Simulated scan of single mutants.
Amino acid sequence: MAKEFEIVRAFEVDASPEQVWEAITTGTGGWLWPMEYEPREGGAAPFGGTVTRWEPGHRLTSRVENPEGVGGQTLNELDNTIEARDDGRRAWVRYVHSGIFTDDWDNQYDGANQHTDFYLHTLRQYLAHFSGRPVAFATVQGPGASAAPDAFTAVGRALGLAEDAGEGTEVRARGPEPLDAVVDYRTPHFIGLRTGTALYRFFGRNRWGAPVGVSVHDFAPGADGERNGAAWEEWLARAFA
């Protein structure tokens, strides 16, 4: 049964409104997957959408209409409002994700709600540590076995993370190569690791019936996104062999 949803978050960041606007609109892959917007109302937006509001430095709204309900949605809208704080040295951000889910509403809403917190946390990490730096982005998903109900625990084990390694813990994680990192996010379904040159995001999408995933935002000079993706895909295959 089709039903509307709305997910709202608001927060302040130690970044200017211009930096936040650039992070959201330039599509580099610095904190989310690369998404580009045609800079005008009525312009093209990601996933076949349309820009319905374009106020540089202040407001961006995009809308995707999908009457056939492919992917379990007939409507998806993202709205970002940015306001200056402390004479423009900081910014206040309000993020609203709304639309209509058509299949398994509770599961879809729970997944979108929990992913929102992780994505916006990653935005804040990007703004605090890597804002404006060139990035090589990669995202991969695990094999079918990683969709099992308890699969995400294997990710933590493969990384060599202690169960009590919470946010702020310094670790030497076992990736394709050893990673001297800080755990910047950890819940039963998500892990975030930050090094001096990269953000590593681990998604326990098995919670919602999909394979686990890994995204890498690599800011090191000469970073190769394709090579990173291949290395982490192989790592996931070994973790679930």
Rank of each mutant, 00 (worst) to 15 (best):
K3M: 10
E6G: 09
V8P: 06
V8T: 15
V8I: 15
R9M: 07
E12I: 06
E12H: 03
S16H: 07
S16V: 06
E18A: 15
W21G: 01
W21P: 01
E22P: 00
A23W: 08
T25G: 08
T28L: 11
G30S: 14
G30Y: 09
G30C: 13
W31R: 05
W31T: 00
W33S: 11
W33I: 00
P34I: 10
M35D: 13
M35V: 11
E38N: 10
E38C: 10
R40Y: 08
E41K: 13
E41H: 04
G42T: 10
G48C: 05
G49W: 06
T50A: 10
V51P: 14
V51A: 14
W54D: 14
E55K: 14
G57I: 15
H58S: 15
R59G: 03
R63P: 02
E65N: 08
P67F: 06
P67A: 09
V70W: 02
G72H: 05
Q73E: 15
Q73D: 11
Q73M: 13
L75I: 00
L75A: 12
N76L: 09
N76R: 08
N76W: 12
T81S: 10
E83L: 04
D86K: 03
R90C: 08
R90K: 15
W92L: 13
W92V: 00
V93K: 05
V93Q: 07
Y95G: 04
T102K: 06
D103S: 04
D103R: 11
W105E: 14
D106N: 12
N107M: 14
Q108S: 14
Q108T: 10
Y109N: 10
D110W: 00
G111S: 12
H115Y: 09
Y119W: 12
T122H: 04
T122E: 06
L123F: 03
L123K: 01
Q125P: 08
R133S: 11
A136K: 02
F137K: 02
F137H: 11
F137P: 03
F137I: 05
V140M: 09
D150W: 00
F152N: 02
V155C: 03
G156T: 05
A165V: 12
E170S: 13
V171K: 03
R172F: 07
G175P: 07
P178K: 06
L179D: 13
A181N: 07
V182C: 04
V182P: 00
Y185N: 08
Y185S: 09
T187G: 02
P188V: 06
H189L: 10
F190M: 06
L193I: 12
R194T: 04
T195V: 13
G196Y: 05
T197W: 10
T197Q: 15
A198K: 01
A198M: 08
L199G: 03
Y200Q: 04
F203Q: 01
F203P: 01
R207P: 02
A210H: 07
P211F: 04
V212K: 01
V216S: 02
H217E: 11
A220K: 03
P221L: 00
P221R: 00
A223P: 03
E226F: 01
A231Q: 09
E234P: 01
A237G: 05
R238E: 15
F240C: 03
A241N: 10
A241T: 14
